[in-house]
Computed example of a mutant assay.
Amino acid sequence: MTLPRTNTFSGLSLILDRLAERRDELDWVAEQAADVDARYILLDSLGETYLLPGRDALRWLSAEERKLLADTPASFLGHAQDRPHFLLTVDDADLALELETQLGAIRLSLREAGLLLPADEAGLFAYAKGLAHWQRETRFCAYCGSPLQLVSSGHRAQCTNTVCGRMHFPRTDAAIIVIVEHEGACLLGRQAGWPPGRYSTLAGFIEPGESLEDAVRREVAEESGVIVGEVHYHSSQPWPMPASLMVGFTAKAIDPTIRLRDRELEDARWFTPEQIVDGLRHGSFGVPSKLSVSYQLLASWLRLRANLELDALIP
């Protein structure tokens, strides 16, 4: 099955069975790893992976090639296309470089590869990168400081202190991202370090004890001064850069007055579809990366409000 290209990295459940209930069955996992059809995605210490040059495809390691890293534990990702999939990480920079030559591959980051790869491979890369980041960052127990040991095929980490024995699980930082509208215009902002003319939807992290809808209202007010009323869910996107989940919303302003408060944004403006079209035509307006749910929020809004396709508008 080929995944639809909606939000990048999304839709993985259509082709992947994570088989989470079997991660603790060591003999079964070992059988999967020895399967001749097993394949392994390899990530270096920066979270970059290996691609086939000029092919826009992952350079998977076969079960036989897995012997190149025989001493490296593998994390079970699940079954896709009736094949077991695993993650391998290589922290040694010299070895990572050597493997490029051995595998006839190049290394790219998730940002670089996200739109080059087929949707299923982009999603698997994102999954592997998020898991590898958590493994690399979660080395010691947050309760007693003792070293942790990866268990459950790499999806849990257990404290080695028998008195403590706490279990640690992968964490995801939830963030909202929203396109706000008012009287036929949408609210977009820009940060100072962005390329000239680029604007994007507003976003921010969820705070403790806060609903997603309340986070939308707070973040929009904090960043732009605009007061939001109605909030509706749009879609979500895994964003393991390094460990986020972007939850997309649409919202309506009840007070559209822009008052930049904390200077997180260099500028914020209301844009009509006509202004966006003119800005794209003259090069004075830049859209967010197609990799992001922000792009999809803007594209969806333009389609709904003006029957315009953002892809067709970009030169």
Rank of each mutant, 00 (worst) to 15 (best):
V226M: 08
F205R: 11
H232K: 05
F205G: 12
D262V: 01
I276W: 00
E223W: 00
K252R: 15
S236P: 00
V247M: 11
S200P: 10
R259A: 04
R269G: 10
Q237H: 12
P196M: 06
I258N: 08
V220Y: 09
P240F: 14
P208N: 00
A253P: 08
R269Y: 04
Q275D: 14
T250Y: 13
V231F: 11
L265Y: 06
Y233K: 05
R218C: 03
R259V: 07
E266Y: 09
D255A: 03
S211F: 02
I276V: 14
P256Y: 05
E264C: 03
H232G: 01
V228L: 00
S236A: 11
A243F: 04
P196F: 07
P256H: 08
F205I: 02
S224M: 10
G193S: 09
E274Y: 04
S211W: 05
L212C: 03
S235P: 03
F271D: 11
G197T: 04
V226G: 12
W194N: 11
E207A: 14
T272I: 09
L212K: 04
S235H: 14
Y233T: 14
D262K: 07
P242D: 09
Q237T: 07
D262F: 02
G197Q: 06
Y233E: 10
R217E: 09
A268W: 01
T201P: 11
M241W: 02
P238K: 05
L265A: 04
L265I: 01
Y199F: 15
E210M: 13
G248A: 15
I206N: 10
G197E: 09
V216F: 12
V220S: 01
G193T: 02
V226A: 07
E213N: 10
S224Q: 09
G197H: 06
A203N: 11
Q275S: 14
W239N: 14
S235R: 09
V228H: 01
R261Y: 01
A203P: 00
S211A: 11
Y199C: 02
I227K: 00
R217H: 10
L265H: 06
P238D: 15
T250F: 13
